[in-house]
């Protein structure tokens, strides 16, 4: 065992001694962002930090969900935001009638079922995952509109104090949850057979079939995990705003995709980690908050986020070609 750990240590040392250009670029970008943030007046003030951390958390939980899809070789899902919104509404409705624990459970089940069904289509039939997710998203909006008549559901007054809010160790509770989910997601990837199989399938689907790995089951499970994390996002959103509606989903979806890309999760699947996604979420959110603090308006936020995603994709394809 000494041999193995020393070789692992040697690899790490080599990486630090002669860092790849990519690593240098990444660290440089992170430092630049940190400097930019610190140079922004009022960034370090308590209210804006709290806003930053809360936003990070919503986007972050969704990005963690997205990472399961991406690593498994299914690119991205465009339905996770809508799933989170549905989960939020399910949570509020069940909470009002059956209490907090049932509400959370129902939200998680709703998320897992919605994405799990998509996972079945993709796993059993090898349906194109992007198209499936777009179709699912439209379906979800359609059904939700029919059921809720476009209305917002509110948490009843008597139950509001039961919601998870406020701060723990000075950070908003959402952020603590996000940190926990990142660690949990990473553990699932690193230490479960499902997690390892997900990497195999993402990095070589046909090789995985040839080896005899359970490709269908793993793909479906990846979507179920994504749905569970989307469900958590829904619970957090509803808890923060004491209400839920389909509008919730609109921006987090895209921001989560941006975060996964910026974090450097390989688009074709098979590599990445929750820690990288975390870094991506931090980077994207910091840029957005700094823009807001400098007085840029919403359209600028969208514009810049779009540009970032394009830039990452272009850089990525360039590297792939080499």
């Amino acid at each position: 065992m000494v041999g193995v750990s020393s070789s692992a240590a040697r690899t790490l040392w080599l990486r630090l001694k002669a860092p790849s250009r990519l690593l240098v670029v990444r660290v440089a970008i992170m430092l630049a962002l940190a400097a930019l943030a610190l140079a922004t007046p009022s960034f370090l003030s308590a209210p804006s930090l709290t806003t930053l951390l809360t936003t990070i958390s919503f986007v972050g939980c969704l990005a963690i969900a997205m990472t399961f899809v991406t690593i498994g070789g299914n690119v991205m899902s465009f339905a996770l935001g809508a799933t989170a919104a549905v989960s939020a509404m399910v949570f509020v409705v069940v909470l009002n009638t059956a209490g907090y624990a049932s509400g959370v459970a129902a939200a998680l089940v709703a998320g897992a079922v919605i994405t799990g069904l998509q996972g079945c289509l993709i796993g059993f039939l090898r349906a194109n995952p992007i198209i499936v997710s777009i179709a699912a998203s439209v379906l979800i909006y359609g059904v939700a509109q029919r059921v809720t008549s476009n209305e917002t559901v509110h948490v009843s007054e008597t139950l509001i104090q039961s919601l998870l809010k406020g701060k723990l160790f000075g950070a908003p509770i959402e952020f603590i949850v996000f940190l926990g989910l990142t660690a949990f997601g990473q553990a699932v990837l690193s230490f479960t057979t499902f997690g390892r199989n997900l990497f195999y399938i993402g990095s070589g689907f046909r090789a995985a079939e040839a080896v005899g790995l359970p490709t269908v089951r793993t793909t479906i499970l990846a979507y179920v995990w994504a749905g569970l994390f989307a469900g958590v996002t829904g619970v957090l959103l509803a808890s923060r705003y004491n209400q839920a509606n389909m509008e919730f989903a609109l921006r987090y979806d895209y921001d989560a995709i941006a975060a996964v890309l910026v974090g450097g999760i390989a688009i074709q699947g098979g590599s990445g980690s929750m820690l990288r996604t975390f870094a991506g979420v931090a980077a994207v959110s910091t840029i957005q908050i700094v823009l807001l603090l400098h007085g840029f308006r919403e359209e600028w936020r969208l514009f810049i986020t779009g540009l970032i995603v394009l830039a990452v994709v272009v850089l990525y394809s360039k590297r792939q070609r080499q």
Partner: peptide
């Protein structure tokens, strides 16, 4: 390349 080795 496609049915044997994983990109890991």
């Amino acid at each position: 390349a496609t049915e044997g080795i994983f990109d890991r």
